[in-house]
């Protein structure tokens, strides 16, 4: 759509700008301010310059080592769930009925995990996987595998990833389903006339149409999984040991547990910058793709 240039449009954006700026800029400045200072309690602050940042980015220091370990865990978690949720979401979307009562029931069930409060998601999986009272943990133990997510780090990771897959695959599947529905029947008819195989139909008709929704899905899932806090906090509390202490959990431990505001603030800034950089790349790709599509598809996208 060709947009007309009119700077008065700023008046329409002003309420949003004011509201978000109030919520974003004041707290962000507080964090920046803390990150250059040290505190020994009693609300006394001392200038520390770039000290915290130097310590944070130096893997050999205590804080730096801790930060890079947590960063690694967060990155591993995000990559892990993306590697499962995206293919699984596409598969489920391809398997969904196109219409009818089955679809309606399926959609309601699929949307249900998305509306469960995050602490309750943690609670559900805690109750489900505990070896003593959980169906899943009990079953695994019953077949002879010793399963206890509070003791074994690998099993704790398994529970966290299974939980996230349970929680969010539906979002990817629903997005893909919407993308698939926007493909006109004529495309499939043409493919049938050409004698295209099922795989070829997926590769050359469905996948290109899914590109955009997948981009949105990956972007949303990356943002939310990289800053995940509540669910692992409820299920594993970052343990056993520190094995599932992802960035957010470590950050809250430092900020609210030890009240090391300077360290936590410097960590927050670096953390936010990482998220922003990755999202900026995604966003740029998304916008570039959009501007390359000359014609809008049938369904406004």
């Amino acid at each position: 759509m060709i947009k007309s240039v009119d700077n008065r449009a700023w008046f329409l954006v002003l309420p949003v700008f004011a509201l978000v700026a109030f919520n974003a800029i004041v707290p962000l400045m507080t964090v920046v301010n803390y990150s250059f200072q040290d505190s020994f309690g009693n609300n006394q602050f001392f200038w520390n310059g770039l000290g915290w940042y130097q310590e944070l980015l130096d893997p050999s220091s205590e804080l730096g080592g801790r930060f890079f370990a947590a960063l690694g865990r967060s990155a591993a978690f995000s990559l892990g769930i993306l590697a499962i949720e995206v293919p699984l979401g596409i598969l489920v979307a391809l398997c969904m009925p196109r219409d009818g009562a089955q679809l309606a029931i399926g959609l309601v069930i699929m949307a249900l995990p998305l509306l469960v409060p995050w602490n309750v998601v943690g609670t559900i999986w805690l109750l489900y996987t505990r070896p003593d009272i959980g169906l899943f943990g009990w079953l695994i133990n019953a077949v002879g595998i010793d399963f206890n997510a509070t003791k074994n780090a690998a099993q704790a990771w398994f529970v966290l990833i299974a939980m996230d897959v349970w929680h969010w695959t539906s979002l990817v599947a629903l997005l893909c389903f919407a993308g698939l529905k926007s493909i006109p029947d004529a495309y499939y008819q043409a493919a049938r006339i050409d004698g295209a195989s099922r795989l070829a139909i997926f590769r050359y008709i469905e996948l290109p149409k899914l590109g955009r929704v997948l981009m949105i899905g990956v972007l949303l899932r990356f943002m939310d999984s990289f800053m995940i806090y509540t669910e692992p906090f409820v299920v594993t509390g970052g343990g056993p040991g520190n094995s599932t202490t992802v960035l957010s959990i470590d950050l809250v431990k430092i900020a609210l547990g030890q009240f090391d505001l300077g360290k936590a603030a410097a960590m927050s800034i670096v953390y936010t910058l990482i998220v922003l950089t990755v999202c900026w790349v995604f966003y740029t790709v998304l916008v570039t793709r959009d501007s390359q599509t000359v014609e809008r598809p049938e369904v406004p996208s």
Binding site: V16, V26, P27, T30, V31, Y229, L247, S248, V252, T272
Partner: peptide, 19 residues
């Protein structure tokens, strides 16, 4: 605007309390 959707809530918890 979108960056704010991306900002980790853990980062803002304490400043929000102050604000």
């Amino acid at each position: 605007l979108l960056t704010n959707r991306m900002a980790p809530a853990a980062v803002f918890a304490l400043p929000y309390f102050n604000l």
